[in-house]
């Protein structure tokens, strides 16, 4: 199994983000980041919601309470939430980190992911959300980059590519 962001890295990433100031992790599970979520569940720090935009709403409420939040989801869920990103997160300037599992990155991923997966980078660019793709080797740098954005009140996205089949 070729998994770029290995289990250990995903768990490390959760711990690292917690250490540097992310206090809340809210979202809809995605298998691409299952170890990240499992690490959070182990530490009782995860809130699982019914939809991605619901998670974004909860994170906005926590941000009003001056706490930093990460919202995790699959790219299909991000596409579902675009108008929430523009009319809540960007309109009110809520600094939220999005962690997005990128299905449809591989051309032979399941067919339902193909079209939305192909335009994923363009979607982020079109609405003006800066992003970085996380790998085993740039993990720390990406987490710090995201924290820096949050500290400057700018929402941003971290992307995990789906580089395996199950």
């Amino acid at each position: 199994m070729l998994l770029k962001l290995r289990e250990l890295s995903q768990r490390k990433m959760f711990d690292l983000l917690s250490q540097i100031g992310i206090e809340n992790f809210i979202g809809v599970p995605d298998s691409t980041m299952k170890y990240f979520i499992s690490q959070g569940l182990k530490k009782k720090k995860i809130i699982v919601t019914t939809r991605e935009d619901e998670a974004i709403g909860i994170a906005a409420g926590m941000s009003l309470s001056k706490q930093n939040s990460l919202v995790f989801m699959q790219n299909a869920g991000f596409a579902n939430s675009i108008s929430t990103v523009t009319s809540l997160i960007q309109l009110y300037e809520f600094p939220i980190v999005f962690l997005i599992g990128w299905r449809g990155y591989l051309k032979d991923d399941a067919p339902e992911h193909y079209k939305i997966g192909r335009i994923q980078p363009k979607l982020l660019k079109a609405i003006g959300i800066d992003s970085k793709i996380i790998t085993d080797s740039n993990l720390k740098e990406c987490c710090k980059w995201a924290m820096n954005k949050i500290n400057n009140s700018i929402p941003c996205a971290l992307i995990i590519k789906r580089e395996f089949h199950d």
């Binding site: 935009d53 619901e54 709403g57 906005a60 409420g61």
Partner: peptide, 11 residues
């Protein structure tokens, strides 16, 4: 999303 925002504030 008003109830979701409120949930975040309440928690």
């Amino acid at each position: 999303l008003s109830s979701s925002i409120a949930l975040g504030v309440a928690l």
